[in-house]
Amino acid sequence: MSNVSRLIKRNVYIPILKRTGSVLLAVGLLDIAVMAYCIANRISYSSSFNVFAVVAGIFLLRGSLRAASIVRWFAAFLLAGFLALLVAWPFMQPIDLTLTHMRLSPLSTAASVGVMALVFALLFWLYRELGRTPVLAACAAAGRKARDMRIPAAAGVGVVAALGVFLALLLGGESASKAQAMAEQQLGSAYQYHVSSLNIAKNSQGTFVAGVVTAWNAKEIRHVSVRWEEH
């Protein structure tokens, strides 16, 4: 009997699934608690872990090899997406704005970087643990087709690239120029301007545009809401 067969027969993969499941469940419950606190105190908060992490954690604790395969796939997808986003970020937001935010809000910046580092570490750990030999061998023995992790990695990079192109087209058009001009009319030339978001909605009554323009200088960062109707 081969070493792989012995590992499968002894269910060596089960502790790995339980360990990763326990961590995911804990992270998901913590995320839900933080989200509830932020909602109750009207604090902006967004996360994609909460319910997904809880459900995936429960299935992993039950020894689901299908859940292990799905979680590893998404871990590869998100890891590649995070790395691509780091590369694309200077093209999505002016470097000077990023540096100004770091200088004016060092604690907030440190907290954001810390959370991102923890998330990245968690995803890497999940990818590595669920790709260990006992888990992959158990999947193969159960008749599950081996997944090519280059596919989710390429998908993660592709999503970020598509988002970057979309934002470049949206925020580089006439509507973005008008939004920036409207913000500059309110605050004057003492600021630099960057269109942070833009929403264009069309209906039978016309086209409605709303957006947020970030204005900054060496002393402060401000967010200006603009909206208008196009005929």
Results as ranks from 00 to 15, higher is better:
212 V>R: 00
145 K>N: 12
21 G>H: 04
180 Q>A: 07
99 L>M: 15
223 H>I: 06
203 N>F: 09
97 L>Y: 12
39 I>M: 01
166 F>K: 11
155 A>H: 06
186 Q>A: 09
182 M>I: 06
77 F>Q: 03
176 A>Y: 05
44 S>V: 14
159 V>L: 10
61 L>F: 00
90 P>V: 09
69 S>L: 05
109 T>W: 12
75 A>L: 05
48 S>W: 08
70 I>R: 13
208 F>K: 08
131 G>Y: 01
165 V>S: 08
163 L>F: 15
179 A>M: 09
224 V>I: 15
132 R>K: 12
148 D>F: 12
71 V>N: 02
125 W>E: 10
170 L>R: 14
158 G>V: 03
161 A>S: 01
23 V>M: 08
103 R>Q: 14
29 L>Q: 00
13 Y>W: 10
219 K>G: 00
222 R>S: 10
90 P>I: 06
158 G>N: 07
176 A>R: 04
190 A>S: 12
122 L>G: 10
132 R>F: 01
45 Y>C: 11
159 V>C: 07
8 I>A: 04
142 A>F: 01
56 A>S: 15
152 P>E: 13
45 Y>D: 06
17 L>M: 01
59 F>W: 13
206 G>D: 12
16 I>F: 05
203 N>K: 07
228 W>D: 03
191 Y>G: 05
137 A>V: 04
134 P>F: 02
70 I>N: 09
26 A>P: 04
126 L>S: 03
216 W>C: 14
180 Q>I: 01
90 P>T: 11
227 R>Y: 10
178 K>E: 14
166 F>S: 14
223 H>P: 00
121 A>T: 10
164 G>A: 08
192 Q>H: 15
228 W>Y: 14
179 A>S: 05
4 V>L: 10
106 P>L: 06
80 A>P: 07
